[in-house]
Design a protein around this nucleic acid. Structure first.
Lengths: 197, 197, 197, 197
DNA sequence: CATGAATGAGTCTTCATTCAT
DNA sequence: AATGAATGAAGACTCATTCAT
């Protein structure tokens, strides 16, 4: 963008509200409709913007949706308490809440389904949400191991996969949304990890 | 195949072949392209059939895909050996092989993404593949518990979710396809379940 | 196209009327609007056909217009009389009549303007109309030379260009459509060619 | 360039540069793309100006292109030598050179194709380039006739059309760009015009 | 004056579905 | 039963033009 000598941008400035409204609408519609079914018309209407305004900022539909996904970020998790059970629970409950808030299952479904055509989607999801979430879990486990609460030779990565993955297996099996889920999987995991004394 | 009273197959032999060819093509394309991207033209071409022939048997695209998904069945798993570790491994490895063979992740992604528009898809998947697979796992665990190898109060359903779900978490995290996966998650699970003595 | 054993085409047969109506409409609109301005909607409406029907037969707009141009053919010119002046006149008058009937100037203009983007157009025009027309003229000249009415060393190709080209120069100069044109250019040409004795 | 009474250039020097840059870019793009295909964005980019700056000076696309065409002028032809053959050749060669330099065929094609929608274009072309070029030719012929080298009753206008028009016929026939063209058509024309003695 | 944002109208093309043979 | 033609309803993207800064 060109600027004047004083650094002020020349011409009319791009509306930040519109920008955000578009991305928000796009993300919601992506979750609700899936990549292909979602139309730019819908986004334009939802964001109260003309279709051309969207194209002005993102050249293609794929670009828009990539940008929309890139805005996704994990919500903040309370700081670790030092108690492994408490901390794992708090991460998983936040995870579940997040998934429900943004219709995460559908979003993930779309990204998986689109992998062959638009691989950026699942990559972004991985970087922005899946990776960080798993990292949080792993960190709690490592610290606990540092405190000697967990067996030295425990396979923490597998523990993370169990904690995180059981959510999806449950959803697919039709037992998603159970409030006990977090407690159950945490206790199960701890049983596998704890130093046997 | 239907037969007449005399045992001779009814006239529409040719039709039955087409029937199957269509369903097979539809399933493959569903996994490869996703629900919306897959077109009836593609199915028709792949099945070497006219588009009208498809519509003759299934009124709509959704009907066809529902039928296609309904044909999915778990491949046969070797009979239980009685050793819990062996049996769980054999089930999980068969599961992973299956997923790769039919591009299962993409298929599941599509069904999840489409849940709002075509809920039959995920339902079918659940009934035909997810449910049975989980049932197999559960059965092995229960029998082992019957033999006293597993704690009486063990949460078997959560164990199943961990075994099954870790596959998805791994995939999403970009660590799918690892051959060690099955061993690792089985050993992790057994550590949680075994009677501590 | 697949056919039955008896050679009869299978399924509904493609309407020859529609086919022709589309091509006719396309050619007319091409002349009236030019390549880019002409829309498939206009063609569909003019031919009383759905847009999809057009796409069923021609994959793209360029394909359609190429096909439309390819249908162009010179109208029939009366058989040569043996008198050079009569024959040249008859060819040129037919040429002028044709040009007016199909709005040839606009058509040629479009093909020239599109040369960079759709070179097939001018090529087709050349093969179907310009080339044959010039060939007719040349043939009359050659036969006349054979009869000794024209100088042996006369540059017939240049004569053809003068006869044919003066039409365009006149049009561009704003003196198109003059009924005397043909006589004048023929007499001029003959003056250049005749054996001086 | 305009100047104040004191001879100092008027303030909008910068503006005048832009003005010219726009017109130049427009003319080039008109020849390269044709009326409809050429976009104001392309012009703006080529002229290093914003689209709005264009609209500030010309209300519509048609206005701009009309103005652009109006800037066209024949390049200067060397002063007549008094020898008819030499002078005709020099005019025609300059003509051909011009046509190639500005992609004149495409430009003319566009103007002809657009005649129905934007008749100003061909009118301008006629006034600025075709007319003057033909006038040059005619003048040489008339002077030659004045010197008695050409028959009194010769049809000079037709001669001009032959000289000028053969260029287009040749181009359309696929024999454009031949260096001999000018000589051939001049000699042909002179053969028709010369006083037979 | 000059710029960039914003937009509405329009265009080609695709596709599930219905018709005619 | 099976085929291919025909279609209406969309959808992504483009562009001349108008606004706001």
């Amino acid at each position: 963008m060109r600027t004047t000598k004083t650094g002020k941008p020349v011409g009319r400035t791009r509306s930040a509200e519109k920008h955000e409204a578009i991305l928000t609408a796009a993300l919601e519609l992506l979750a609700a409709q899936g990549y292909v079914r979602m139309t730019l018309d819908q986004v334009a209407t939802a964001a109260d913007v003309s279709k051309s305004t969207i194209h002005l900022r993102w050249k293609t539909k794929a670009d828009l949706l990539t940008a929309a996904l890139a805005t996704m970020r994990m919500a903040d998790v309370p700081p670790p308490s030092g108690d492994i059970r408490t901390d794992l629970l708090s991460i998983l409950k936040d995870f579940a809440a997040n998934m429900e808030r943004v219709n995460g299952i559908a979003l993930i479904g779309t990204c998986l389904a689109e992998e062959a055509h638009t691989p950026e989607l699942i990559t972004l999801l991985r970087e922005r949400t899946i990776g960080p979430r798993r990292a949080l879990l792993r960190q709690v486990l490592e610290e606990s191991r540092g405190r000697g609460e967990i067996r030295e030779d425990a396979d923490l990565e597998t523990a993370v996969s169990a904690l995180h993955g059981s959510y999806f297996s449950d959803y697919m099996a039709g037992r998603g949304g159970r409030p006990e889920w977090a407690e159950q999987v945490v206790d199960f995991t701890l049983a596998a990890l704890r130093t046997s004394d």
